[in-house]
């Protein structure tokens, strides 16, 4: 090897080591986010972006706002917090699981009396296929009442904007359906998107709601 035996010969390697670990640290938000999904969640929690006030059409053909405001439905006036899930009704897998997890959350909310201050939304990102009838089908399958828990679809013209604001990624799968990042998205009273939960993290979502109310 090198005849030079002073400790200086360690410096270049140590320098690269420090720089390398530092870069990886920075690139993964302190090793907290290795995947895009975790990066998205981290970023939401930290920057709490404003959600665009899009209009949705629900399973009964009524118009309602994604955030609160002018078009909130009657009961929605007092409902300060919205929890949104993105689905497509013909999904045979995740969206059905998501539905039953949502149902559990609804039961917990009803039991504890928080049921009339929260709004649960399942929003379809497949407006071409999901008309009010399909939405109603999903509602019936999971017992969504249209008040505490409503099923709606986004307008075709707003689809891209909605996907972008939530970091929603939808890709076609081999069976003619879609794979998508499934999660519960919390929109707080000021209309900011401020937390994300796994679809089965009913406990975590419930606690976050309780904290904010």
């Amino acid at each position: 090897m090198s005849a030079q035996s002073s400790i200086y010969r360690w410096f270049p390697s140590l320098g690269v080591l420090v720089l390398g670990v530092g870069t990886l640290w920075a690139a993964t938000d302190g090793f907290r986010a290795l995947t895009e999904e975790s990066a998205r969640r981290l970023q939401v929690a930290e920057s709490r972006p404003q959600v665009p006030s899009l209009l949705l059409e629900d399973m009964n053909g009524r118009i309602l706002g994604l955030t609160h405001g002018a078009f909130a439905d009657k009961a929605g006036e007092e409902r300060q917090i919205t929890l949104v899930e993105f689905i497509y009704t013909s999904c045979p897998t995740i969206c059905q699981t998501a539905g039953s997890d949502y149902a559990q959350l609804r039961d917990r909310l009803k039991q504890s009396g928080l049921g009339d201050r929260v709004r649960l939304l399942s929003v379809s990102f497949d407006p071409e296929q999901d008309g009010p009838e399909e939405l109603r089908g999903y509602a019936e399958a999971h017992g969504a009442d249209g008040v505490l828990w409503n099923i709606a679809r986004v307008g075709v013209q707003d689809l891209e904007l909605m996907k972008r604001s939530f970091g929603l990624r939808v890709i076609p799968d081999v069976w003619g359906g879609y794979e998508h990042n499934a999660a519960m998205h919390l929109i707080d009273p000021s209309g900011r998107f401020s937390a994300v939960f796994d679809i089965d993290d009913v406990e975590g979502a419930y606690r976050a709601l309780e904290e904010r109310l």
């Binding site: 090897m1 010969r9 390697s13």
Partner: peptide, 27 residues
Amino acid sequence: PAYFANAITLVAVFAVFFWMLPRYIDA
């Protein structure tokens, strides 16, 4: 010199690590 070659090799190692992060493959 070997010590310098080691350092440059490590640069490659970290670059590989970086591109093994699913986050940046997605990005």
